[in-house]
Design a protein around this nucleic acid. Structure first.
Lengths: 192, 192
DNA sequence: CACGATACATACACTGAGTATGTAAAACCA
DNA sequence: TGGTTTTACATACTCAGTGTATGTATCGTG
């Protein structure tokens, strides 16, 4: 029984997105069938294919939303950090590490996303959310332009790997401290 | 017509492995069917399933071999670097970056492998090849034990991301220089 | 209030993974 | 040296899951 108001349509799309987020986060992209998603969203696969281009497209929408959430957490924390560029850079990086370590985002964004979307496209998504802020903060903190891109890439890779590493450790808080500690060294190394 | 000497069997297994390496490297794991691999290896899917547990198992074997090649390149370069631990660490890291930037390994090892094998298992594979040497070199160069694991993880992530970043750039040599430069800063930051 | 467009549901086709079974050659053994 | 077992595959089948084509009810619109 199809209801067709624009509001209702947006709602089913959101329900699909939520169900897909949970499923992809818990079981990983390849293990999730669109039938699963449809069922837990209370619709049929037809509805999914109406709102999204295909399975990869649905995943892309999920990833984009999670990425945006991470980015907004980073921005919020950087703003709270005050005016000093170096302090702001550090705050943003640590906030990023914490945000991406948190539950659903980690595996989905760091492991599945590059494989499903392709690394280049995944990078572009990242560049438009957290990436811009990282480069901006690095520039403000005095990193020269000709090594700005490389610095952003290496730092970003280090933080991503750190998040996965932390999550793998039996205890959580100890490794988290270690990772933040090492991360501070990496950041300092970039500021002369 | 099945020939059954152990030597011939090992040969077909090797042919499958070679064909799979090419296919996975060129088109990525999900886009490669076992029929493709079988055909370019000159056998049927039956032969593949005889020598390997399943598609993921075949991929794992491919990844393990490539990883070993990278590791041996790193070790060779580190040995050439002489006795100073700091110099050896630097040489090994730069060799790793160059080796993994090279053709087939990059996408297969850095993008597909974590997704297909699972990040944990992929880490374990890495730990047994390049990982041990990295930790050893870091320890020799004076990194304290209580931040050794975290340092290895972050550095490893930085190098992996660097390789993918380099490959994405339109020109190659410029970015390569940049990445090595930034990498040196990261390494130095760990040695007090 | 016909009429197109939207928002789905249903039905179907096809690809590809995994498995079960068949078979011929080699290795082993009496 | 002839029979038996094991190895190394090929062939045939099943089943899940993606994508697509088609059907249909509701909504907005002139």
């Amino acid at each position: 029984m199809p209801r067709a108001t624009a509001a209702a349509a947006a709602l089913t799309a959101a329900q699909v997105l939520d169900a897909a987020t949970d499923a992809f986060a818990e079981r990983g992209f390849p293990a999730v069938s669109l039938d699963d998603v449809a069922q837990s969203a209370g619709v049929t696969r037809g509805a999914i294919y109406h709102h999204f281009s295909n399975k990869a497209g649905l995943f892309g929408a999920v990833a984009a939303r999670l990425q945006a959430e991470v980015a907004s957490a980073v921005v919020a924390s950087a703003e709270r950090a005050g005016g000093d560029p170096a302090v702001q850079l550090r705050a943003g990086c640590h906030a990023f590490l914490d945000a991406i370590t948190a539950a659903p985002a980690r595996r989905l964004l760091l492991v599945d996303a590059p494989a499903v979307m392709g690394w280049t496209q995944w990078r572009q998504l990242d560049a438009k959310s957290s990436g811009v802020h990282l480069r901006e903060a690095l520039a403000d903190a005095g990193v020269e332009i000709d090594r700005l891109e490389a610095t952003a890439a290496l730092l970003s890779g280090a933080m991503n790997e750190a998040a996965l590493w932390i999550a793998e450790q039996p205890s959580v808080d100890g490794p988290r401290e270690q990772a933040h500690d090492v991360l501070d060294r990496l950041i300092d190394a970039q500021l002369r």
